[in-house]
């Protein structure tokens, strides 16, 4: 998976995607729209795991949800397997959805508390019109695949631990035999001891089913472990994108450098601890030019005048910074 060249097939392609949430409009004030995702271009190769990191509020979850068409973009397009998802509606879109699934952050609230596990996992199959008997057979196979037992099928979600619930969520996502899975912080709600088990499960399933992952997280250690490539998001844009080893070894964007320096153990590897000043600017009112300049120690006049484009600073390594070379 790791040694992919540019000839490998693109499974998901995102062009100029923007997702804005309307602001309040009233007689007394007009709040500007919240630019959660503000112009993202992205290609995800078949079979790879693309990690997506960034602080909370940077738009990484919204990007993942927009790929699932859970959020409506204001502009831009999403291509899946040479089909334009953004044009699809109704039945066509619902059929298409089986190919792309999502694993959610909160394993409890993503399972309907009034359904037994058998129904939860079989829901996608039921929607696709699979017969009862066939559904049961597949559900029983899936629950074993995610490391639970068939007797768990007759229980309710509240009877399980966090890790087990996430396994149920994974089994549900696998039921429709998707090719692409958006995992939206799938382990951040779990105990550290359980996290690695879920990550390893996801890796095994990727191998077995030939899955492509978009893995969203704020824990850089977890992302490094599972991802082939990693994208860093800041204020609705991707600011750096590279192979995982390369990004962690040689971050070019100051923001990425700051993020990596905050990883425990980073200082021992010779990285200086960078402490960022100030808060993330409001996505309702982003700074001109480079969005990071308000917190950047290298910022110059040029940074507020000119927005740095995401450019290939070395082979397979893109960064959006004037000083990335």
């Amino acid at each position: 998976m790791r040694d992919m060249d540019d000839t490998s097939t693109t499974l998901v392609q995102v062009n100029g995607l923007k997702v804005h949430f309307a602001g309040e409009r009233s007689l007394f004030r007009d709040t500007p729209p919240l630019r959660a995702v503000d112009g993202v271009d992205l290609k995800i190769q078949a079979g790879e795991t693309l990690g997506l990191v960034g602080e909370s509020g940077c738009g990484k979850s919204t990007l993942g949800r927009a790929l699932m068409r859970l959020e409506e973009p204001v502009s831009g397009s999403i291509w899946f397997d040479d089909k334009n998802l953004s044009d699809m509606n109704g039945t066509e879109l619902r059929k298409m959805r089986r190919d792309m699934q999502m694993i959610f952050q909160d394993p409890l609230s993503s399972l309907d508390p009034r359904m037994k596990v058998r129904r939860i996992i079989g829901e996608g199959l039921a929607i696709a019109g699979v017969s009862r008997a066939e559904r049961d057979a597949q559900v029983e196979e899936l629950i074993v695949k995610v490391g639970l037992r068939t007797e768990h099928l007759n229980r309710y979600p509240h009877e399980f631990s966090g890790g087990q619930r996430q396994r149920i969520g994974i089994a549900r996502a696998l039921a429709t035999r998707p090719r692409f899975i958006v995992a939206d912080e799938p382990v951040s709600a779990l105990d550290v001891s359980i996290q690695s088990q879920i990550i390893n499960l996801m890796k095994d399933l990727q191998r077995e089913f030939g899955l492509t992952y978009l893995f969203i997280a704020h824990d850089l250690g977890v992302v490094e472990y599972i991802s082939d490539r990693v994208g860093v998001m800041y204020l609705g844009r991707i600011v750096e994108l590279a192979d995982a080893d390369d990004l962690y070894a040689d971050p070019r964007m100051p923001y990425t450098q700051a993020l990596l320096s905050a990883v425990p153990g980073g200082a021992e590897e010779g990285r200086e601890r960078i402490i960022l000043q100030g808060d993330v600017p409001s996505p309702r009112n982003p700074p001109s030019g480079c969005a990071f300049r308000t917190r950047c120690w290298r910022a110059e006049e040029r940074c507020s005048a000119e927005r740095p484009q995401l450019r290939e600073v070395k082979p397979r390594h893109w960064a959006a910074c004037h000083f990335a070379d």
Partner: peptide, 21 residues
């Protein structure tokens, strides 16, 4: 709640979601 999002990604239509969830 996220389980409604999950049902949407599974391809459930609005009336199905209303009835089952």
């Amino acid at each position: 709640l996220p389980f409604v999002d999950a049902a949407v990604t599974l391809g459930a239509g609005p009336w199905r979601i209303i009835a089952t969830h």
